[in-house]
Amino acid sequence: MQKESSVKIRPECLKPAIYWEKPTGAEIQEIVRQAGFTGRLAADYLDLADKTGRQIRRWISGETDIPYSAWALLCHAAGHGAIWDINADEMRQHRRALEREERDG
């Protein structure tokens, strides 16, 4: 039986990269747990050069930021689906909105 965690993953961490907010160390640790991985298994899953799990620990400790691509793959393994999925029209609309903000703001 898997232990229930008190760490909730914020919805803004489960969005396509253009809307994404970086997860906290506790959220990274929780996603690794939900995926059923140890640090070493997560490193293997992500095909990191260092298979010891050290990089995973760095992300959890906040020493370094987790890249979106690694986060998205871990979320997928944890059962959160393809958080990266977004259509090209939505990307274009978002880009135009950002350009307007920069121009007007």
Rank of each mutant, 00 (worst) to 15 (best):
R33G: 04
A26N: 10
P67Q: 07
A70C: 11
T38N: 07
D65M: 11
E63P: 00
R54S: 13
T24Q: 05
P16L: 07
G25T: 03
Y68W: 08
L46R: 12
D65G: 05
Q55S: 08
I66Y: 05
Y45L: 02
V32C: 01
I56S: 05
S69L: 06
E30M: 10
E27F: 02
Y45S: 13
I60T: 12
L48R: 03
P23F: 13
G36L: 07
A43T: 00
V32R: 09
G36M: 07
I60C: 05
S61E: 11
L46S: 11
G39H: 10
G39P: 03
D47K: 15
G36T: 07
K22N: 02
T64L: 03
R58V: 11
I56C: 11
V32A: 00
F37Y: 10
R40I: 00
G62N: 07
D47W: 06
E63Q: 14
S69I: 07
Q29H: 08
P67F: 04
F37C: 02
R58Y: 15
L41M: 12
I18D: 04
A70S: 13
A70D: 11
P67R: 07
Y68N: 09
W20Q: 05
A17T: 01
K51C: 06
I60K: 12
G25D: 01
I60R: 07
A49N: 10
I60P: 04
A42M: 09
P16G: 04
P23H: 13
E63W: 01
A70G: 12
P23A: 09
W59Y: 15
T64Q: 04
R54G: 09
Y68L: 10
P67E: 07
K22M: 04
L48S: 04
I31R: 05
T64F: 06
A17H: 06
R54P: 00
D47M: 13
A17L: 11
T24N: 07
Y68G: 11
A43F: 03
D50Q: 04
T64H: 06
K22L: 02
A26T: 05
R33Q: 13
V32D: 00
Q34M: 13
E63G: 02
P23W: 14
A70R: 03
P23Y: 12
Y45H: 15
